[in-house]
């Protein structure tokens, strides 16, 4: 017997027998190809945002380390920051045919992994919620905070997500990475 779809599963289509698997690392954004696939990431204090357009059946996920640089810091909001990776994900989805006005969001992660240290995870989760509110993208499901690492498996065709608690040692090291070579590139025609 087929299980009834959960309230968070926008599609009741039976699962495909074969999925490609794609792993998203910190600093990346990925939009589904339209073929059956599962997009996976493992999070500590980082946030993964899954966006889904249920009409176009296009979904994507990003994974960011930090929220945004301080306004006067002179630091560019590069791929370490949600401020950039959220826009990158939205734009890549629009390029693939999704409409921003139809997008719905899930956010996961944002754990505060080390007691007594700066609450980076909480700040990341606050940023993600605020960003989505500013952009008028409904947040339909979230699982953030706490002290545990999470594994997120996202089906970008059906918009379904499975979240599991995993051990801390399963989380890749979360630290800032070098900017992309093309970032900030100026070309005058």
């Amino acid at each position: 017997m087929q299980a009834a779809p959960s309230p968070h599963s926008p599609d009741s289509t039976p699962p495909a027998t074969h999925h490609d698997h794609v792993t998203i690392m910190q600093g990346q954004a990925y939009v589904g190809t339209g073929k059956p696939e599962i997009v996976t990431t493992i999070l500590g204090s980082c946030i993964a945002c899954c966006l889904y357009d249920p009409v176009a059946r296009i979904g994507g996920m990003n994974h960011f380390l930090l929220a945004e640089p301080a306004p006067d810091s002179g630091v560019v909001a590069d791929a370490n920051y949600g401020a950039y990776l959220m826009e990158l994900l939205i734009n890549q989805m629009m390029t693939s045919g999704a409409l921003k006005s139809r997008m719905k969001a899930h956010i996961y992660g944002g754990a505060d992994m080390h007691r007594g240290m700066t609450q980076i995870g909480s700040a990341n989760a606050r940023f993600a919620r605020q960003f989505l509110a500013t952009e008028n993208i409904p947040l339909v499901r979230s699982d953030t905070g706490g002290e545990c690492a999470r594994r997120v498996d996202f089906d970008p065709v059906r918009g379904r997500v499975r979240v599991r608690i995993v051990g801390r040692r399963d989380v890749p090291v979360e630290r800032p990475s070098a900017p992309r070579p093309a970032s900030g590139e100026v070309e005058l025609f």
């Binding site: 560019v76 791929a79 950039y84 390029t95 900030g184 025609f189």
Partner: peptide, 29 residues
């Protein structure tokens, strides 16, 4: 734009754009 492909830049140039900056941008640049 977050886009940085030569194809998109060529299309912008053809349409009449003066230049292109890839996000994320540095405000001073």
């Amino acid at each position: 734009s977050t886009e940085s492909s030569d194809e998109k830049k060529a299309r912008a140039r053809s349409a009449g754009a003066t230049g292109w900056i890839v996000k994320p941008f540095d405000a001073d640049r």
